[in-house]
Design a protein around this nucleic acid. Structure first.
Length: 492
RNA sequence: GGGCCGUUAGCUCAGCGGUAGAGCAGUUGACUCUUAAUCAAUUGGUCGAAGGUUCAAUCCCUUCACGGCCCA
């Protein structure tokens, strides 16, 4: 670090500008590589190319006394550059050789050529140091492998581990493809409050905050659902929001306290309609990004081309978890059967529905590798979903499972204010029994429903988890640029 | 929250009771065709923190911090 400071001082001493901002690259490494891909060495000598200016970071240096090669990395890719006493002049060569370190940002100007080995190379005539890299870089071969350091210093991770950038490029393209798909299907993107008086729309603990001027306690939203539905009441028929939610819960390979979710609502649609549209959208997005509808994830090849499998939660417990009809009869038989399968039972068991879903989550979820819709959820865990027309206690909800993980929820939305009131009451009861995740009673939302919400279907889709699939990453932190970590006492 | 594992040079790692090692990076020298350049020499460490056991601790024990994986 000290040596790097000395080199910077030496550069300034020899007349170099300090952090200049007048460099104007007129090409990228990739453009030049493509433009001259076919040109051989003789042709490049016979007809001098125009002068090109590239900007980028020096990522490798190979010195041969009076000749040096370096690898210049810019946003597009990387290209070899070279300086020599003969070609660049002794002063320019010495300035580079004496003052430039690995990691420095430079602007280099020169003409294209090929080396004796045939490598396309920018033969540098002049250069400027744009920004000094004051810290030594990680191992040039292994890169930065310490997971903690990679998350804490993502900016470093990004330029020393080139695959990392690709992950976030893919994520960005995925999000953009989703937006285009929805825009083309008549949806309107909207923005609803993140600061909410009551954090509703999901069952999770919120983050608390406070507004000073109003002296008002507020929560960061855990879901946009209740506001998006208000827009249906207001007359918008197709809306979506693709944005951040916050849940004050544990951190794992599947959970980050802030995460991105897509929710959309369609008037005059059922669960079936939104499931169908989601299937179409995912097929479209995967094909856009991959060129085909198959996706390699870990050891699995996931096929978005075929119609997604569908089964009720009940069927899945019978066929995939090995329960019998008799096991599923009552809360007691189910508890006994689950215990026999060594399912760790919740304590206390509050309802049949919750135990049922718990069994599904522990025994079935991990088996659902290919895209699968699980249909019909217990009413106890689904306070915002329309009830099943002929099965009391069950709702017209579905969840999408891919690679053993839950990826999204699909509802025929509840728009009957009396039913909704009863569901809120049930949640209020759970809260009074100490359930910190119970959904708060939302009077204003009920008021909106009382004004009439058109029948609708809606979805929530986890964008981070989808990004994990698309980029073949095992942890949610690998698809979030700056995942939350506990601060370190001694941070570099 | 529980279990297991990790934390040693800027990076990647070895060492596991006798007082600290390698490769890369850095520094010095040689070198006009390398692309993990090569060759020679060389600098660099409160061995995550605190306490304990011991003649002696990076190593054994305890607690703590941060992280990873699995489970809840």
């Amino acid at each position: 670090m000290l040596q790097r400071q000395h080199k910077f001082a030496e550069y300034l001493k020899r007349g170099g500008a300090r952090y200049p901002n007048d460099a104007r690259p007129n090409a990228t490494t990739v453009e030049l590589a493509q433009r001259y891909a076919a040109a051989d060495k003789e042709a490049l000598i016979a007809t001098a190319t125009p002068l090109y200016t590239l900007g980028g970071r020096i990522m490798a240096l190979r010195l041969f006394g009076k000749l040096l090669f370096a690898q210049l990395q810019d946003g597009a890719g990387s290209l070899q550059i070279s300086l020599s006493v003969d070609g660049s002049g002794p002063e320019v060569f010495a300035l580079f050789n004496d003052c430039i370190d690995l990691g420095d940002w430079v602007a280099v100007t020169g003409r294209m050529g090929r080396t004796n080995k045939g490598e396309l190379t920018l033969l540098v005539e002049t250069f400027t140091l744009l920004a000094k890299c004051h810290h030594p870089l990680p191992d040039k071969w292994h890169g930065l492998e310490d997971v903690e350091a990679r998350y804490r210093q993502r900016y470093l991770d990004m330029f020393v581990n080139p695959d990392v950038q690709q992950v976030f490029v893919t994520r960005s393209r995925m999000v953009s493809a989703i937006r285009r798909f929805l825009d083309e299907h008549g949806f309107l993107e909207v923005e609803t409050p993140i600061l909410q008086l009551q954090a509703g729309g999901a069952t999770a603990r919120p983050f608390h905050t406070h507004h000073n001027a109003l002296d008002l306690p507020l929560n960061l939203r855990i879901a946009p659902e209740l506001f998006l539905k208000r827009l249906l009441v207001g007359g918008m028929t197709r809306v979506y929001e693709l944005s951040r939610n916050f849940r004050n819960e544990g951190i794992s390979t599947k959970h980050n306290p802030e995460f991105t979710m897509l929710e959309w609502y369609m008037a005059y649609a059922t669960r079936e309609d939104v499931m169908q549209l989601m299937e179409e959208m995912l097929r479209h997005v995967v094909t856009q990004l991959n060129g085909h509808a198959q996706l390699a994830y870990g050891e699995h090849m996931i096929d978005f081309g075929k119609p997604f499998a569908r089964m009720t939660m009940r069927e899945s417990l019978l066929t995939l978890a090995g329960f019998t009809e008799a096991d599923l009869a009552t809360v007691d038989t189910l508890a006994a059967a689950a215990k026999q399968k060594r399912v760790e039972l919740p304590d206390p068991i509050t309802s049949y529905g919750e135990l049922f879903q718990h069994c599904f989550e522990t025994l079935v979820e991990g088996q659902l590798i290919q895209p699968t819709y699980i249909l019909d959820y217990p009413i106890e865990t689904s306070p915002l979903v329309r009830q099943h027309p002929n099965q009391p206690g069950w709702t017209q909800r579905a969840e999408l499972y891919i690679a053993g993980r839950e990826h999204g929820e699909f509802y025929s939305e509840l728009n009957d204010p009396d039913d909704q009131r009863a569901r809120f009451e049930a949640q209020r009861k759970k809260a009074s029994q100490g359930d910190a995740e119970a959904m708060p009673f939302d009077d204003d939302f009920l008021h909106a429903l009382e004004l009439g919400m058109p029948p609708a279907g809606g979805i929530g889709l986890g964008i981070d988890r989808l990004a994990m699939l698309m980029t073949n990453q095992p942890s949610i932190r690998d698809v979030i640029l700056f995942p939350l970590l506990r601060p370190k006492a001694t941070q570099a």
